[in-house]
Amino acid sequence: MLELRLVQGNLLKKVLEAVKDLVTDANFDCSSTGFSLQAMDSSHVALVALLLRSEGFEHYRCDRNVSMGMNLNNMAKMLKCAGNDDIVTIKADDGSDTVTFMFESPNQDKIADFEMKLMDIDSEHLGIPEAEYHAIVRMPSSEFARICKDLSSIGDTVVISVTKEGVKFSTRGDIGNANVVCRQNTTVDKPEESTTIEMHEPVSLTFALRYMNSFTKATPLSSTVTISLSSELPVVVEYKIAEMGYIRFYLAPKIED
């Protein structure tokens, strides 16, 4: 028996909007730790890792570890039917081939049940080694989204370079090239508007903008984004989900032949 009650039901709606374009089908794993997902895109270039910790749910019952295969587009369709202020409960019986999403309006005057068919997904689970990153950039998520969108109108790839001057996002295309430099800026009144750069070594990596733009669909989940870079490793783009956990995107770099 599984029963997970999330008062902030719209968090789940936002999570689905953030991942459904990157991944079609995925297993949601439920354990005493929380509700999680790890899935790669079809070309195995990007990976999404989601964790919603059990403590973040108002009620969390998971009698045994369960893996539920879901089509994310279908799940998003169902969650779109929940109101933004609705409480969402995820329910499944042991051995069942369906999952139920229950939506309750805040004043309890409307209760809806949406039952979705589960699917068998044979997915590879990847171990992500702990890593030391050469540079960690924390910036407003809306600013990062703006830069990715702007650069993708000029080119297909972005070079992200971190030096002691700041973080530089560069692209080039048929019509010209573009560079955006963000400097460390901690003097603003609100911490969520600041940019911080923790650099151990300068680093410069090239990535496909198509994937970066897809990651920025998670912007509504968090006011800040953390970008962790090492010359030997995939970049990690992390959006923290307040009091619940995180959504992390890993993207393999492009390498010169």
Binding site: V45, L47, L126, A252, E256, D257
Partner: peptide
């Protein structure tokens, strides 16, 4: 142009 890596060489499959 630079070529796109996949994630597999970076992560441990199990």
């Amino acid at each position: 142009p630079p070529c796109q890596n996949t994630l597999r060489p970076f992560f441990i499959s199990f």
